[in-house]
Structures are given as structure tokens and as C-alpha cells.
């Protein structure tokens, strides 16, 4: 038994050094001023107009990104459920393939595609269509987020979908359900756990990103992640830590809300 506990050692070491200690440091800096005295100013800094605005924009863009990801990923999950054998392997392979490359590089590639003199505009111009002008706008940032985080939505949904027992669906059909009823009364409720983890895995990074907004927003789209990054770069680690704690609370609240829906979802099943 003790020997088995030893196996958890490396994991505990990583959690301690990589999660607990940094979290304590953020807590310490978040509640002290530069002289080391206790203060709540770093936390209340979130009500300052520029911080509140960035937080609002982050929430909004993360929400839009999550909804789009869900709308794109769910049909793919349904499709994958029905696809068999080699074809399924190929689809999954294609979905995972981009993840083999660093996400910053992929985001920069989008910048080259979307730029005013970029690939997409060159093609549009060549066929005589008006160019698009979305680089350095919130739309470009959302596009980048959706592209970067979509696999995190697809995989958990796919995982629950393939586990749904076919006999349940057959039973529903035997009892006279049409395709739509099967979807809304069997598949959808049973795939809620996958949707929940997908939403979590997309919403949280989309809410806290600063790299995507920097690259595709041209430094003009200022999210809460960018503010925290700037704070740390400018040596204001107290304010940066305070704001980090605030978004941690926001994420915890969102998670709690989502989990509440989860319970409802499973409750209606029972």
C-alpha cells in the first residue's frame, strides 16, 4: 500500500511546485501593496473602468467563442458516432492534426491569412471580390479562439457520444420516437457531461487568453488577460495578482453555474 502511494509522489511534487506554491504567491501579492501591507485595493481594482471593460469584453468574447465551438462540435460528434472504422479514424486524425503544431504558430498563420495584404484577400481580389477587413477586430480574435480551442470541445463530446448504448436508441425507436425525439430525449441528455467538460475546456482558456488577442487583435483588443500580462511586465505584480484572483472567482462562478445545469440535465434523465 505504501509503495503504491509512492507512485503519486511525482504528481504531488508537480502539483505542489506548479499549482499550490504559485497560487499562494498570487494570493500573497494579491492582498498586499508594494510595501507588503495588507490591502484590498488590488481586488477592487477590477471596478476601475478600463479593467471592468476588459473583463466584460473577455466574458463576451469567451461566451461567443464557446457557443460557436459547441454549435460546430456537436454535429461533428453526431457524425462521428455514426461513422465506423477507418473513416472515423481519419476524421479524428484530421481534427487532431493541427494540435501537433504549436498554437502560437497556428495563430500567427491566421494573421498571415487574414491580413489586409494577406492570402485570403489576395485570393478574393484575384477573383474580383471585395476584400475582407477583419484583422485587428474582435471578430478576428473570436475566429482565432474558435480555431484554437475547437478540438477541446469536439473530443469530450465525441467521448460521451461513442459510449451511448445503441440499444437505448433502438428502444426509443421501437417505442415510436422519430429522429428528432431520439436526439432531444436520448442523445442530448446523455451527452451533457461531454458538453460540460467541452464548455469548461473552451471557456476558461478563451476567457484568460492574451496571446490570441495580441496576435489577431493587433494590440487593439484589450482583454483581461492582456491587462494582467501588462501588469506583470510593468512590474505591477500586486495588481496583476489581484486581477488574476478576480478572474479565478469568475471562472469558479461559471463552473458552478455549468455544474448546476449538469445536475438538471442528469436529473431530468432519471
Amino acid at each position: 500500500m505504501n509503495k503504491r502511494k509512492l507512485l503519486a509522489g511525482p504528481y504531488l511534487a508537480i502539483v505542489l511546485c506548479g499549482t499550490i506554491i504559485p497560487l499562494l504567491a498570487i494570493l500573497y501579492y494579491g492582498f498586499t501593496d508594494r510595501a507588503g501591507q495588507f490591502t484590498l485595493a488590488n481586488i477592487t481594482a477590477v471596478t476601475e473602468p478600463e479593467n471592468a471593460k476588459a473583463l466584460g469584453l473577455s466574458l463576451l468574447l469567451a461566451l461567443i467563442c464557446t457557443v460557436i465551438c459547441l454549435l460546430l462540435a456537436y454535429p461533428i460528434g453526431l457524425l462521428l458516432r455514426r461513422t465506423k472504422g477507418e473513416k472515423k479514424g481519419l476524421i479524428i486524425f484530421v481534427l487532431i492534426l493541427p494540435m501537433w503544431m504549436n498554437f502560437l504558430l497556428r495563430t500567427m498563420a491566421w494573421k498571415a491569412l487574414l491580413a489586409n495584404t494577406g492570402v485570403i484577400n489576395a485570393i478574393l481580389e484575384a477573383v474580383g471580390l471585395p476584400g475582407i477587413n477583419i484583422i485587428n477586430t474582435p471578430a478576428a480574435v473570436v475566429l482565432g479562439m474558435v480555431y484554437d480551442f475547437l478540438p477541446f470541445m469536439i473530443l469530450p463530446i465525441y467521448n460521451v457520444m461513442i459510449k451511448i448504448d445503441n440499444s437505448l436508441i433502438e428502444a426509443a425507436q421501437d417505442l415510436g420516437s422519430n429522429g428528432f425525439q431520439v436526439l432531444t430525449r436520448i442523445i442530448l441528455p446523455l451527452s451533457v457531461p461531454g458538453i460540460i467538460s467541452g464548455v469548461t475546456m473552451v471557456f476558461v482558456p478563451a476567457m484568460t487568453t492574451f496571446a490570441i488577442s495580441n496576435i489577431l487583435g493587433g494590440g487593439k483588443i484589450y482583454l483581461i488577460g492582456n491587462i494582467i500580462e501588462q501588469d506583470f511586465l510593468m512590474g505591477l505584480r500586486q495588481t496583476g495578482s489581484g486581477l488574476s484572483l478576480v478572474i479565478m472567482v469568475f471562472i469558479l462562478i461559471s463552473m458552478a453555474l455549468i455544474n448546476k445545469f449538469d445536475k438538471n440535465g442528469e436529473g431530468s434523465m432519471l
Binding site: 478600463e50 510593468m234 512590474g235
Partner: peptide, 14 residues
Amino acid sequence: DATLASYWKRFRGN
């Protein structure tokens, strides 16, 4: 530095 940073954030967050 802190003064400059606060003005910088005012500008960038606008």
C-alpha cells in the same frame, strides 16, 4: 513607474 503604468493602462484600456 507605478504612476506611468496607471496612465498607460488608462490609455490602453480605452
